[in-house]
């Protein structure tokens, strides 16, 4: 009881500090880092749900992110949709695409899913570049307007300043992580872990693996698409680089370092890996080379990741001779 209330208190204080940052500092660099963290952590959290909990290695996240971005940007600028309906449409389209990819490939094997999801992400970038009549090609759609949100009571919030975007994206990230947390700590998350740990056993117990896998993919696609739709108005431009493999590699590293299947671990590593490389001022190429080395080293030296290590420790503790209870 005590430990739980201490944790809850720490969580509430942490959240309050995060929301107070724009009041404490007007530093735009800090706000920019916070916005990056909010967006990237939603992507890595979704990947963790799909890979860490359900055991499906997916490269499709960046595709969902970009689809959400383009959809929201096009609907808001060309069809005069409101921000939220554009973002919701982006999330819905990403989810639909995710279901098609997941359903078609998962019936064959998880090998096929990994391959198809990668092909999908690369295809997205190429389509964004070459379908000029829709996406305006490599130049993208620059100069996205500052969106306005209607608040209850007739107030209108024009999101123009970095602090506005910080609140918007942080608020959405809190919602997204609450949703993911709700799923992974429920019996749905338990079934996903069961499928990852031993799929035939789960099937023999009445669990339908395809249904849970599609649920995980759909949720991660929805959140990635929506966060893309919000993030793109902060960038004020959407072009094919929204599908850059850089995002995929970054969120993979966040999940691997944080520990696949560890909610708080991935959240923490997302924060650290957003801030540290930026503060050290690595160029992107060099950062990707380093990430690659980290990935190889992690796979060779810690095949089970952080989760595997924790599991071995727990097993060792139980195996110690104990006084009979």
């Amino acid at each position: 009881m005590n430990a739980i209330s201490v944790r809850a208190l720490a969580f509430v204080i942490g959240l309050m500090v995060l929301f107070a940052i724009p009041k404490l500092t007007g530093n735009e660099y800090v706000l920019a880092l916070g916005i990056s963290f909010a967006a990237l952590s939603v992507l890595s959290g979704g990947l963790n749900l799909v890979y860490g909990y359900t055991g499906l290695l997916s490269f499709a996240q960046v595709g969902f992110f970009g689809i959400g971005s383009y959809t929201a940007a096009l609907l808001v600028t060309e069809q005069n949709w409101s921000l939220w309906s554009g973002v919701a449409a982006g999330g819905a389209l990403a989810t639909a695409v995710g279901m098609v990819i997941g359903y078609s490939s998962l019936r064959l094997s998880r090998h096929a899913f990994a391959i198809v999801s990668l092909s999908f992400a690369l295809l997205c970038m190429i389509v964004a570049r070459d379908w000029v009549s829709l996406t305006r090609g490599a130049m993208g759609i620059p100069g996205l307007p500052a969106p306005t949100i209607n608040l209850p009571g007739g107030m209108r919030w024009r999101i123009a300043q970095p602090a506005d975007f910080y609140y918007l994206l942080l608020g959405f990230a809190v919602f997204a992580h609450a949703l993911i947390y709700g799923v992974v700590t429920s019996r749905l998350g338990r079934a996903m872990r069961a499928i990852k740990l031993n799929e035939p056993l789960a099937q023999s117990q009445g669990i339908n693996p395809l249904a849970y896998k599609l649920l995980a993919i759909a949720l991660s696609a929805l959140l990635a698409g929506m966060v893309g739709g919000l993030f793109v108005f902060y960038l004020t431009i959407v072009d094919p680089s929204i599908f850059d493999f850089y995002y995929t590699e970054t969120m993979l590293i966040m999940v691997i370092i944080g520990g696949p299947g560890s909610f708080w671990g991935v959240l923490a590593s997302s924060a650290v890996l957003t801030a540290v490389p930026d503060l050290l001022r690595f160029t992107t190429d060099l950062r990707m080379v380093l990430y690659g080395v980290v990935l190889i080293a992690a796979m060779l030296l810690f095949p089970g990741g952080l989760g595997g290590w924790l599991h071995r420790r727990r097993v060792a503790r139980w195996r110690q001779p104990r006084v009979a209870p």
């Binding site: 290695l57 990994a114 590699e249 993979l252 691997i256 990707m288 080379v289 990430y291 690659g292 080395v293 980290v294 990935l295 190889i296 992690a298 796979m299 060779l300």
Partner: peptide, 11 residues
């Protein structure tokens, strides 16, 4: 194996 070869590809 995928993550390992992906790391190699990144490098």
């Amino acid at each position: 194996s995928i993550l390992l070869t992906l790391g190699l590809s990144m490098v």
